[in-house]
Amino acid sequence: MIKSIKTTLGLATIIILSTMFITACSSQNPPLEKSGAQLWGENCVRCHNAPSPSAFSDNQWETVAMHMKIRANLNSSETAEIVEFLQMAN
């Protein structure tokens, strides 16, 4: 039982790792169609209420966004769009 679970998990790991390789090494993501405001509206409400742009200064948004990018598995281009929107609207 444990053996077969280990094999399955091993296989799953290999699949995940290869996906990571392919996606990490492939060229950039397709161009983003969504605006920073839309990305903010859709993503920043998933776990908690979305903070309004005026909640932080430009510098603070950079740090918060990096924190959230990691926590929420966002990619850099999406995060950059969101930061740009927040810094423009604060």
């Binding site: 990571m20 996606t23 990490a24 950039q28 993501n29 990018k69 990691i70 990619n75 850099s76 281009s77």
Partner: peptide, 9 residues
């Protein structure tokens, strides 16, 4: 945390 790629940390 260190960002290795645009979509990998």
């Amino acid at each position: 945390a260190y960002e290795l790629r645009d979509n990998l940390t």
